[in-house]
Simulated scan of single mutants.
Amino acid sequence: MTNQRTDRIEHHACFGGWQDVYRHRSNVLGCDMTVGVYFPPQADPAHPRHAPCPVLYWLSGLTCTEQNFIAKAGAQRYAAEHGIILVAPDTSPRGDEVADADGYDLGKGAGFYVNATREPWARHYRMYDYVVDELPAWVEADPAANGVRAISGHSMGGHGALTIALKNPGRYRSVSAFAPIVAPSQVPWGEKAFGAYLGDDREAWKAYDTVELVGAARERLPLLVDQGGADEFLEGQLRPQLLQAACEKAGHPLQLRMRAGHDHSYYFISSFIGEHIAYHASALKA
């Protein structure tokens, strides 16, 4: 990984490859960001099956950093099997100059993958531009990456993955989500964050709402969604039935899999992350 303002701060052997963590300067966010990057064994020039690898971007949920996914999901095993680079950024800008709020669902750790337009958030909270443009430009400058990408995420990050894929036709080969916030304009988490970051005009919120976006999507990229049936946030914050109804109305392909007994935790994610990575691998190598 090469960048003028980049430091590798962790380096761990893992399933024949390397789990690294980098700190790099983000001009978009105006702060330093940490990013987990897993390089599968196929990314090593000495590997007998060496080749540049596709990239799967993972967006995490509320309160998370890059550490939650790389330490808890068990995804590296499957990325090594399929020859996929995994990139897991932090969930918000960080630093003493970055605005914050009381509570876990606004401010640091809760960037919601939007470009904030209201102060004090607008100066730093531009996670949409960071994920769509700046992060891939930084990651994919490495010769280990082949320029083909997919995106996935959990909860707030599932919201981010779905909206970013829908708003950028042709940019991602595939998209999936675990327990996504599919209609943030209609649930407390989203109403609080959008009201703070975007203001009171609910029309502006629609640009970051999956249920609103599917109707006007210019690309019928299939959506794969896994949702735990015992998720404590299912009815109050997630409401996957709203996405199902919107996709049926728009004729947009959706595979919604309700997983009986599973909650909102990384036990749920780790149970099915192998299936998701295999799903992305099929699209990334098509």
Results as ranks from 00 to 15, higher is better:
residue 270 S to L: 09
residue 30 G to I: 05
residue 192 K to S: 14
residue 14 C to P: 03
residue 41 P to N: 08
residue 274 G to F: 12
residue 79 A to T: 00
residue 194 F to H: 10
residue 56 L to N: 00
residue 18 W to I: 13
residue 230 A to P: 04
residue 267 Y to W: 06
residue 17 G to N: 00
residue 152 S to T: 15
residue 143 P to R: 13
residue 160 G to Y: 02
residue 148 V to R: 15
residue 170 G to H: 05
residue 251 G to D: 04
residue 148 V to M: 06
residue 132 V to M: 13
residue 225 V to D: 11
residue 122 A to E: 02
residue 19 Q to I: 02
residue 64 C to M: 13
residue 271 S to C: 06
residue 41 P to Y: 00
residue 106 L to A: 01
residue 237 Q to P: 03
residue 276 H to G: 01
residue 255 Q to A: 14
residue 112 F to Y: 14
residue 141 A to T: 09
residue 216 A to G: 11
residue 185 S to F: 11
residue 47 H to K: 02
residue 254 L to N: 12
residue 27 N to H: 14
residue 36 G to M: 07
residue 20 D to W: 02
residue 23 R to E: 08
residue 184 P to H: 06
residue 206 K to T: 13
residue 201 D to Q: 13
residue 29 L to N: 11
residue 92 S to Y: 11
residue 40 P to N: 00
residue 67 Q to S: 11
residue 271 S to V: 02
residue 248 E to N: 10
residue 31 C to G: 11
residue 119 E to D: 15
residue 115 N to W: 06
residue 36 G to C: 12
residue 31 C to Y: 12
residue 282 S to V: 07
residue 158 G to F: 11
residue 199 G to T: 07
residue 129 D to M: 09
residue 268 F to A: 04
residue 78 Y to A: 03
residue 199 G to K: 05
residue 34 T to A: 14
residue 228 G to L: 09
residue 175 V to N: 04
residue 126 R to S: 15
residue 235 E to F: 08
residue 195 G to F: 11
residue 60 S to G: 15
residue 239 R to S: 07
residue 43 A to N: 01
residue 255 Q to V: 12
residue 141 A to V: 06
residue 162 L to Q: 01
residue 83 G to P: 11
residue 274 G to M: 07
residue 35 V to F: 02
residue 4 Q to F: 10
residue 282 S to Q: 07
residue 215 G to I: 03
residue 275 E to H: 08
residue 185 S to M: 07
residue 219 E to C: 05
residue 67 Q to E: 10
residue 5 R to G: 12
residue 228 G to Y: 07
residue 257 R to Q: 14
residue 105 D to W: 04
residue 92 S to I: 09
residue 131 V to H: 00
residue 70 I to N: 00
residue 168 N to D: 05
residue 214 V to A: 05
residue 124 H to I: 08
residue 183 A to V: 10
residue 283 A to Q: 06
residue 107 G to E: 04
residue 67 Q to L: 11
residue 232 E to Y: 05
residue 74 G to L: 07
residue 65 T to L: 09
residue 45 P to Y: 08
residue 269 I to K: 06
residue 238 L to V: 13
residue 16 G to K: 02
residue 198 L to D: 03
residue 206 K to Y: 13
residue 26 S to L: 09
residue 49 R to K: 07
residue 116 A to W: 00
residue 59 L to Y: 13
residue 245 A to V: 03
residue 284 L to Q: 03
residue 111 G to Y: 07
residue 157 G to V: 02
residue 38 Y to E: 06
residue 71 A to S: 14
residue 129 D to Q: 11
residue 39 F to V: 01
residue 63 T to R: 12
residue 51 A to N: 10
residue 228 G to C: 09
residue 98 V to A: 07
residue 26 S to W: 02
residue 184 P to N: 06
residue 92 S to C: 14
residue 19 Q to R: 11
residue 243 L to W: 14
residue 60 S to Y: 08
